[in-house]
Every structure is written in C-alpha cells, then in structure tokens.
Nucleic acid binder design. Structure first.
Lengths: 337, 337
DNA sequence: CCCGTTTTTGCAACCGGTTGCAAAGTGGCG
DNA sequence: CGCCACTTTGCAACCGGTTGCAAAAACGGG
C-alpha cells in the first residue's frame, strides 16, 4: 500500500541509505544520486514516515497541548495561535482535553506513549504540580498562563496575576469608586487566587474603601452571570473587578437585565481583552493579557527545553495594560501618570 | 533514558514477546507470566511506545482534525466535543489549522507522514474536493459540516443546508415579514451557497416578497457587523436570515448601535444555536444545528472507515429545528403546526 | 599517472515494538 | 502412565526508517 524507502531505493537503483540521506538535512549525498532519488520518490509519491524515523532519531516533532478550558472563548484564540505557531516551526500539536480531570497521571502516560518531544500545559487554573508531573516523567514542559513563582519548578510563561489584581484595584480607586468587589473564577484556580491577593493588597492600603469578594463556579458566561445575579439581590458594590472577560460579560448581562446601567450604576473591569471584549455591543474595559507574546514565548521555550532538558526552570512574565472602553466611568480627577 | 520492552523482559526473566503479549489485547499469556511482567513493568514505570508498535500493527490511533475556522466561537464547542469524543475511544486528535489555506496538498502530506489512521475535516466552508484529496491519498476521511450530496465522493456528516435555508425562509414568511434578506458568510463557502439556494427557493414561490441577499467576508462577528452597517445605509430589509450565529451577533450589534430595535424594527434569525446565542444579552432566535450528534456520528463513521476503507461514501444528515428566542417577532397569525 | 585526501556509498546493526511458527509445557482422559 | 489436544513460550524476522563504519569513488597536486 504505502510506498517505502525500499521501493524508492529499488526504483532509483541505489541503497536504502542513499534514499534516507537525501531526505535528511545535512547528510552526504552527491548531486547525481540526489536527483535520481528525488525523481524516483516523485514518481512513486513517496514521503518519509515521520514516526518510523522518530524511533532512531528520538524526535517526533509532536508537542502535547494540554488544556482544560473549552468554555472560555479566549481559548479559541489560544488554540489558533498555538497551532499556527507550532506548525510554522514544523511541529504538530497533539491535543489533550482534560475536561474536569485534575490528575496529571493519565495525560503523562498518554503523551509518553506517543513520545511527544515536549508538552505545553495551557491553563490558568491548574496548579504548578500538574506541569511538574511531566517534568518528573522526563518530558520537557512549559506551563502557559501558569502561576508565577520566583523559583519555579517548571518553566512558566504568563503574566503576574497579583500585579494585575493591584492594577485593577488602583484603577477602581482612581475612578473614585469606594465600594468595590472582586468577582473571581473558581476559588481553586491559581489565577483567581493571585488576582485576589493583589487586589486586596492595594485595597488594604486604602482605608476609605469597602471591599468584598466572591467566586464564580468556573470561568464561563453562565457562572459569571449567575454570580452577579446573586450579588445584585443584596446591596451590590459600585464596581467589580471580574477575574476574566467571560465572567465580565456574564456579569454585564445580569446587570443590564436588572435594569441597571453600566457604567452609570455599576462599573465593571475584566481581564484578558479577548476578541469579544471589543465587540461594540459589549465594549468592555479590561486588562489586556498579551496572549500572542505568551504563546510565542511558550513555544520558543519548549523548543529550547527539548534541546536542553536540564535548563533551569524560568518564569517569563509579560506586562499587562488597561484597555479603556465603556464599562468603567472616567477618572474622577486627574491621575498622576 | 526511556524504559523499553527489553528492560522489562530482563527484569521479569521472560522473553520480549511475552512482555509484548501481556500488553496486547487478546494475546496468549499465562496468568503467571502476566503477573511477573506487570510487576516488573510497574517497578520500572514502563508503558509501551505507541509509535513503535504502530510500525507493525499499522495503526497509530491518531486522527487528523483539520479545520479552518478559529474565529467562530462555535468551533470551541466543536473542538471540545471532538477531542472528548476521540479520547473516549482511545484516539488522539492531531490538530491541523489551515488558516486561509485551501490547497489540501500540505495537510495530506503532513498527515500521511504521521500515519494518521483517519482524518476529520471540520469545516462548513471547504469544498468536497478538499476532503476528497485525503481519500485519493488512501486516508480514511469524513467531512463534518460538509456539503450534502446524493452521491457523495467522501463521507459527509452534517445538515441539509438547503433545507435550513427553506426553513428560515418559511419562518420569516410565517411571521409576516415581506421585505427580507439573506446575510450570508463568504460567497465561496459551500454552506452559504446552499443556505442561499434553499432560502431563494421558498421565496421565489411567494410572489408577495421582496428578497435580496449579500455576503459577509467571513464567518465572524466583525464581518457580520460590517456587512450590516453597510446594509443599514440604504433601505434595509425588515428581517434577515444570517448564515451563522456569529454573523447574527455582529449584525445585532450594528442594528442596536444604529438606534434601531430588535425585533421591533428589524428581525434576525441565525443558524447554529451556539452557546452564546442563549446568553441573555444576545437571546438570538436561531436554527439549531445538532453539533453533538454530528460530531459523534463523524467519529463513529471515521472509525468504521478505518476498519473498512472501501465503504461506499455516505451522507449523514441531521435535522435542524428553530429555537425561539427574542430576535424575531411572534407569528402574525396562527400557523399550521 | 600515481598517491594521499576527501567525499560518497552500501552494509549491517539498531530503534522499540509485533507476530508466525515450531518447540515446550500443561491438562484431561482412558 | 501414555497419548492427544490445547495453551504458552521463545526465536527470529519484520515494520520503516537512521547511522557508524569501512570500502569505493572522486578529486587534487605534484
């Protein structure tokens, strides 16, 4: 059925090694044989079996892409960028959908069976120990959107979530809000924990503020909406920092359904700046997370780690910035730059 | 580095075949050796190399998942269902992002290099010839969300887009609209072409109607919005059948920004019933495409085709139905059921 | 034209598994 | 206990490639 090295070798009248060499970078073949081989290969429609060659070279060019969030539209953007970025470098994404699984054992075993060259864990909710399980199994791994650490145990690429919390807090203060709240994602998500820490950090330094917080059950529209509906039943805050754009959009929907106006009655600031945040019927003020840079950097780092597995784990953090749109009232008074 | 069959065999004091057999379904091994082997494997942390075994068995359990739409949120749902469905059957999705590529040659070559057992092309825009290229290369293929055909050249699973067009048309007529329009996706997308055909089909049978149509440049929010902004500049229709929910949502945003009300001034009906269509701030009346059933059926069909490559190509079509929400005015008069 | 150097080539072993086949082992039954 | 049928086991070849090594070929200089 499939045409192999041997078929090409016979047709070209050379040895199998000669054929193999014409298809491997930097191997020693004369122009004459190369032409003969290429001709034969063309005629037979031959292309080398990547899996067979991986046996001896030890490289499959497969990269495991592990994620657990298929309900947040930002992940479509994430998958788009990851798959394109990997393809551009000749790598192939092998997708793993964790759903609600939190034990890494299965994914580790599965990805080892397929001899992936490396793994990218794309999740802002999984703990560092998840990615660590790959490292312990000898699989190069990068945790994208993971928790920062000064001495990380695995490579992490993402943002400083505490800093984002502080940034959101300071923004709300600058806008003159005094009764504020953090509407986070699931309490177990590391990103939510860190954003809360940063938010509270700043708030506690400002005595005049009334501060509260609560958690949505997951990073999704429905969860954000449900939580905001609950909050609106009893003395809501003036402004909310939602732990994610998709929560913000859910919250927005609840606020508007309650007949309240944004930002007139209630202010909302999100985090991510996903595509939808810019849609004119949403127009969400948010903190932009530079996912393109995070993803490119993650790919670059995993590739580097494949070449040099003992690289000491590093944390690459990218700065975030406020994207001003229409869900927060303008500054009450001039703010120092 | 990695622990192999041989290591396990030595430690267990048996032959390599014995080890191989304990790990292959239905092979003949005594309980005694099986236990010895399992113990040794456990101690060494062995798990068989799926790629090496694929060399002899001819099965990799890899399924190529090819798509070209990473801007329509429905595809996040699609990826979620595909990856989970494949995983549940012990298969692994190898993702291919076509971006704007329309030539199948690259994907075919790449997926053959990785010896995928089968391929699922998930796209409502690519022509049947795209999937056909895989079949011609001897790779089992199913086209999900593809174009229906009475004698298809490859397996197709999806909906009858012409029928959906008719359904939308009839619905608008039943609601008493007389000036209507089809706002499609890209003109080259087969789904758009077919929906338009069905829509016109019914309209032409109703002399009282004023009908027009136009195309958005792609299936995305921005394209839908841009097209609707253009339409609003000159004598818009009373109601639009948008070729996709994400177009509808873009269109909705444009309509509302123009200070018009929905469904008061303009009615909109979409197609897909993606998660967001049900969000309370969108609340889109739409035609539900049963993507869960389509995806399960696609997986089942590709698996069956792997076992029996010469199966004659079939088209599996699933019925759609109207999901009534808030963007179309209620029936003007009683409608026969 | 000869000889030393460099390039190209094929052989054969190997990567990590599977599998047909024949030999060895096991069990049942008369 | 002996015979037969059935199960289990190991050997060796194979899957589709790669690669170290030594032989062969090509090249360059005198």
């Amino acid at each position: 059925m499939a045409v192999t090295l041997k078929d090409v070798a016979e047709r070209a009248g050379v040895s199998r090694s000669a054929v193999s060499r014409t298809f491997t970078e930097g191997a020693s073949v004369s122009d004459k044989t190369r032409r003969k081989v290429e001709k034969a290969a063309d005629e037979l429609g031959y292309s080398p079996n990547a899996l067979a060659s991986s046996l001896t070279t030890g490289r499959t060019k497969l990269i495991g892409l592990v994620s657990n969030n298929f309900h947040n539209p930002i992940f479509l953007e994430v998958f788009d960028l990851f798959t394109r970025g990997l393809q551009d470098r000749g790598l192939r994404p092998l997708l793993v959908n964790l759903s609600h699984e939190v034990d890494p054992a299965n994914s580790v075993r599965m990805l080892r069976q397929y001899s992936v060259d490396g793994v990218i864990v794309a999740s802002s909710t999984l703990p560092p120990s998840f990615a660590k399980a790959f490292r312990d199994a000898g699989v190069p791994v990068v945790h994208s959107f993971g928790r920062r650490a000064s001495m990380p145990e695995v490579h992490v690429v993402g943002i400083d979530n505490q800093e984002c919390g502080r940034m959101a807090a300071q923004t709300l203060i600058d806008r003159g809000y005094t009764r504020v709240s953090f509407l986070g994602g699931p309490e177990r998500a590391t990103s939510t924990q860190d954003r809360l820490i940063g938010f509270m950090d700043v708030m506690q330094g400002n005595p005049g503020m009334t501060v509260s917080h609560s958690f949505a059950s997951e990073y999704s529209f429905d969860a954000g909406r449900a939580e905001m509906i609950r909050l609106l039943t009893s003395d809501p805050a003036e402004a909310y920092f939602c732990g994610d754009d998709v929560l913000s959009i859910g919250a927005l929907s609840a606020v508007k359904d309650a007949g309240l106006s944004v930002p007139g009655d209630i202010g909302i600031i999100g985090l991510n700046d996903m595509e939808m945040a810019g849609w004119e019927n949403i127009n969400l003020t948010t903190i932009r997370q530079p996912i393109g840079e995070i993803i490119n950097s993650s790919i670059e780092l995993v590739v580097a780690t494949v070449d040099k597995p003992d690289r000491t784990p590093e944390a690459r953090l990218f700065p975030c910035r406020i994207v001003e749109r229409g869900t927060l009232r303008p500054p009450a008074y001039p703010v120092s730059p």
